[in-house]
Simulated scan of single mutants.
Amino acid sequence: MFYLLQSDTLQKAVTAVVAPPEKISMWSLLEKGGWIMYPLYMLLIAAIFVFVERLLAIRRASRIEPNFMSIIRDNIMTGNVSAARSLAKNTNNPVARMIDKGIQRIGKPIDAIEKSMENVGKLEMYSMERNLSILSLIAGIAPMFGFLGTIVGMVQLFYGIASTGEYTLNTIAGGIYTKMITSATGLIIGLIAYVGHNFLSTQIDKTANRMEAASAEFIDILQEPTR
């Protein structure tokens, strides 16, 4: 009888040792970060919203027909300036608006035409870069919120030790959770915003290069009859 009880106790102990640890969901893990997580959630939502909105706007701005400048050239070379103006006016992208301004200034000195087109280009660049600074701001402050969570977690840790007088795993677990989860979340959100900002900046630079190439080609078209 004693042998059976001893075997049963040993079997239960072995089962308890080899039992798999209790699984925890990602949401439950994030909740352990405390109230600091809510500002981080808001920053993440803002970063995603700004990135998607700017990405769609920049893609619309960079969309231009491959033969757009060829048609402009043919119309101007044949003296059909009104057709060139109509095409540029009815095309909704920065390149077309810049060319439209140049067509309006035909007959004036080349320097004046270039200056007018340059001013339009600056306005279009400003329009594409609108709200892009929000991503840069989020990339900077999200890790700071994470570090704030680290401070809050350490305060909870020392408060728990001071309250119980015990330095046990249960005492320090809450503070460690807050410290690690908020720090990791803040860094991840900051990284997402940083990558998104640089990606959009690269797309804007590509569009700006297309605008500069179109501007140079338009000036060449105006000077071509006098060569």
Rank of each mutant, 00 (worst) to 15 (best):
N170D: 08
G149R: 07
T185M: 10
A162Y: 00
Y159S: 13
I176Y: 04
M125W: 12
N198W: 03
A173L: 06
S127N: 08
G165L: 08
T171E: 07
S133K: 15
A213W: 11
L135E: 07
I204Y: 08
A193K: 11
L200S: 03
I172R: 05
Q223V: 02
I161D: 09
N131I: 02
T164A: 11
R130G: 06
I219V: 11
N209Y: 11
F199I: 05
N198R: 09
G140L: 10
N209R: 14
F218Y: 06
G153L: 08
S163C: 03
S136T: 14
D220R: 05
Q156V: 04
Q223C: 01
F145N: 01
A216L: 09
L191D: 04
E129W: 08
G174L: 09
F145S: 03
S133M: 14
A162T: 08
A213Q: 12
T150L: 02
G174I: 10
T168V: 02
E212G: 01
D220V: 01
L187D: 06
F145K: 01
L169Q: 11
Y167P: 00
S133F: 15
A184K: 15
G146T: 02
K206S: 09
L191E: 06
S201N: 15
A193W: 08
I221D: 10
Y159E: 07
L191P: 00
G190F: 06
T178N: 04
F158C: 00
M180T: 15
S136D: 07
E124V: 08
L137I: 12
A139M: 09
R130E: 13
I189K: 01
N209G: 02
H197Y: 15
I134Q: 12
M128V: 04
H197I: 00
T185K: 06
L187R: 12
N209H: 14
I161G: 06
Y167Q: 15
L169S: 13
A193N: 14
Y194M: 13
L200A: 05
L135V: 01
F199A: 06
M125Q: 12
T178D: 03
I172E: 11
L222M: 12
G175H: 03
T182W: 01
A193C: 13
A214H: 08
T164I: 07
S163A: 14
G175D: 01
S163I: 00
F199V: 07
E124N: 09
F199K: 05
T185A: 10
E166G: 00
D205L: 13
